[in-house]
Amino acid sequence: MSDKFTKSMARNIFIGGSLFFFLLFVGLTFDTMGSLPKRDHRENITPQVANGKMLWEENNCIGCHTLLGEGAYFAPELGNVYTRFGQNKEVIKAFIASRPVEGIPGRRSMPQFNLDDQQLDDLAEFLKWTSEIDTNNWPPNVQG
């Protein structure tokens, strides 16, 4: 009865099964790509927003913060920071600009990144755009 269970069949199921589900995944990806424009409001991605994202990356913000829940868990979620800060870009800009260079004794503190006003504005625009993505109502509350 040992050949009730053949290696070639096991292999076929591995290959067939993986291929099947990978194709399914590709199909779902197509569907997702089709329905994303309605959810991410890409028409609002101005050069400013794009530059804001670049600044976000080049200062490694993800190394402490989460953005839509992904990133490090050391500092607050920023996907909804625009909402949390009263839908006010100026508050965000002022917060980033006012970080002390030497930190706060005994506490976590955001580094001082020395961004100029234009850069601060781009970054805030990026965070504003991010807050408008349809995330199926995540996070559960404004605290993120």
Binding site: F14, G17, S18, F21, F22, L24, F25, L28, D31, T32, S35, L36, R39, D40, L68, G69, E70, I133, D134, T135, N136, W138, P139
Partner: peptide, 20 residues
Amino acid sequence: ALITGIIGTGHHYYWIGTPE
């Protein structure tokens, strides 16, 4: 692993702007 894991990627697509 692959049968469950490939579509299992979906568990990262709950809240990042992807469809429900």
